[in-house]
Amino acid sequence: MKNQMKKIFSLLAAAILLLSSLALFSCEKTLPVIGINQYAQHPSLDNCRTGFLAGLAEAGLTEGKDFSVDVQNAGADDNLNAQIASTFASKNAALMVGIATPSAMACFNAAEEKDIPVVFIAVTDPAAASLTEGNVTGTSDRLPVTAQLELIRKLQPDAKTIGILYTLSEPNSVSAIAEYKEKAPSYGFTIEAVGVAAQSEVPLATDSLIAKKVDCFSNLTDNGVVDVLDSILEKTNAAGIPVYGSEVEQVKKGCVASAGIDYYKLGIQTGKLAARILRREAKAADIPFEAVTEYEIYLNETACGELDVSVPADVAASAVKADA
């Protein structure tokens, strides 16, 4: 019996030792650490991250000299997301960066005790996510809904209904749908929104929108839907229905056009903001979050041609070409 107790204690001790050595090892660097918690792996969020690092560089901070970076990806797993954030806090990160709403919320919660500044990227509605008060700031990727509606009207003068797919559990999508429904009538559109509870339901929801004979689809920055855009486009292309994206990567994949955000630029903007905090020129608490005011019109001429969408000359002239 005694021997067994010894065994167990040595096992426990080994586990704790292993953990300690790992922690010590990773704390060796004395540079201020920026902990980046990216919620999932998809091109828009990757662009946020690379843009953010570029923004820090543009602001004159060099990785390895002025700061070091600890990048973690939560793989859309909420438990992992929380644990990554608390690990950053335990390791006394100088700054925590949350990319996408769930990661931003997890970082902000974990940062509470030590009052570590938190910077978020790509949070659509910071107020709804309770990210407006406290030592936190960042950039919002609120969709330019009005510009998107204007764009659709120009490209499809006869269109009446716009179909939108969204994930019920994403607050950013829920608020965007509300905005669409509010603004659509002034452009002569009605909105057919279909919410899904899980990503696996997207194909069925797509079919139901096609069956309702919507004139086009418009995308939100909905993680669940954007992830499976290729399968949506396969169906809509077969049915001859144009899809409007919410940012450039979606247009590259085959959406006809988008009045959208460039997430790389959003990242740069956030990186510059973070540089001010790292240099102690300003406190995150004192900087209000910045919304994107600039957006671009992106155009995929190949897709427009295939779906017989005629692009007016003025739109074609001002748009950024984003063919695959």
Binding site: I16, L18, L22, Q72, N73, A74, G75, L80, I84, T87
Partner: peptide
């Protein structure tokens, strides 16, 4: 507790979360 220690050690070691 042991399970959470293991996960924490994996994160600290910089393990790819997709492998977790």
């Amino acid at each position: 507790i042991l399970y959470k220690f293991c996960i924490q050690a994996a994160i600290l070691a910089g393990l790819d979360p997709s492998l977790l």
